[in-house]
Design a protein around this nucleic acid. Structure first.
Lengths: 238, 238
DNA sequence: AGCGATTTGTGATGTACATCACATCGCAAG
DNA sequence: CTTGCGATGTGATGTACATCACAAATCGCT
């Protein structure tokens, strides 16, 4: 039984904001609590606010008529998310599932717009953030489409390393538990397929387990499988 | 033999810019010619400029080690494109293939940044544009991942309608020719699969041909297959 | 009109992955 | 400890789609 006191290695997607500007954003937020299992918003809801995750974990998902479920993004402490279009009236296209009790700072679109008008430098950083988010979507798109399910899984494992990884001996420990089903939903596969693929990776010594946590032993080989382009860590995330 | 004098129905992705701001952008561009078959940029090139397509057609593509080719975006007259991150040093992740002789306005990142600083309203519109582009990527992601190859094809046909469609009798004529191979590269399938799927659609009366151009007869049925959410036309494009 | 190149159409076969059906494991609550 | 439930592991089988191999149609050119 290990005491789970690990340093947060995770790089939030708000890296692109200066401390001052992050503070300005904080000033126009109001906090709310969201408990595990609840939903912050549903697809179809008007997308008139952004969310700054102060604590907890929230994922954006999409499911189709046949009940198949996809996990598109997973957000952690320090991440900013929400439909990313300021100055546009639009609706959310995903569901926001709260998977751990969370504290969220809510930013009203109107307030954000005012702030962006007032502070050119914030607007600049906001554009950086938007660009980063778009590139993240593009790289994920590429990874999930182009190299089959094994490639998609390997890319996801690399992203998990970048988000939750911790050096441990000669490997990288992924410090959060993910079930095979969750991994499957991240890559649009079945849990059985994920199970078999993970088995193969274990066989070839690329992967091992630490209890129920994954340990990546040979990151390089993972990168080969999904033709990793070594994009910056803040972009290559879950 | 028909005289090809059709009105441009195409809605450019620069819709979100006011005329005045579009003019401001035009003022910092310099024009260049690019002939069909050439490349505007390659993946890995520094992404330090944006491109405004004044005439012609350019597609962004990505190919992998095995030589498989993907068409990610197709841009037409009036479209603005390029790596969309102002204020960041990054490299292009796609190739820009010129498929018709083109006239392109080139915007240097530095010039753009100055302009964004000077004009808050332009910055606002620029953010709208960035958001639009991101959402376009997201919806395409969803369409190509979630509903199999037939879903991906149907979604692509709908996008083609929105981009090149012209009402014709009871159907919608897609006014540009696309080969089966091109369609295949847009959805990550083989031309044989596309051929068979198009055959099926013709059989069920959803699709017909006008010479070598596609005519969508039953848009509604296409929408059913890819669980179309009727997103705005300026977003649901190729 | 005639010829080569490109595109389309279609069967036979192979492969990746999903689906189905269970067995097993681990753990938490009583 | 034991009971139950979610997660994991694994074979058998099915299905979607790719691959291969051609034939037929069409396009573009001189």
């Amino acid at each position: 039984m290990r005491h789970a006191e690990q340093p947060e290695l995770h790089v939030a997607n708000t890296e692109c904001f200066s401390e001052g500007n992050l503070l300005k954003l904080q000033e126009i937020m109001y906090d709310m609590q969201a408990e595990s299992g609840s939903h912050l918003f549903w697809e179809g809801d008007p997308a008139d606010r952004l969310y700054f995750l102060k604590q907890g974990r929230i994922r954006l998902t999409k499911s189709n008529d046949e009940g198949k479920n996809y996990i598109l993004y997973v957000y952690n402490k320090g991440d900013l998310f929400g439909q990313v279009d300021p100055f546009i009236h639009s609706v959310n296209s995903f569901n926001a599932e709260v998977t751990e009790d969370s504290t969220v700072g809510v930013i009203q679109q109107k307030d954000l717009e005012v702030l962006l008008w007032q502070h050119g430098d914030l607007a600049v950083e906001f554009m950086k953030w938007m660009g980063l988010m778009h590139r993240m979507t593009q790289t994920k798109f590429r990874d999930l489409m182009m190299f089959g399910k094994p490639g998609a899984l390997c890319s996801t494992l690399i992203r998990l390393c970048n988000t939750y990884g911790k050096l441990q001996g000669d490997g990288i420990l992924i410090t959060k538990k993910f079930t095979n089903s969750e991994l499957a939903d991240m890559i649009g596969a079945t849990r059985e397929s994920v199970n078999r693929m993970l088995g193969d990776l274990k066989q070839s010594g690329i992967l091992s387990m630490n209890g129920s946590l994954l340990v990546i032993q040979k990151l390089d080989e993972l990168k080969l499988i999904c033709q990793c382009e070594n994009c910056p860590k803040d972009m290559c995330r879950i």
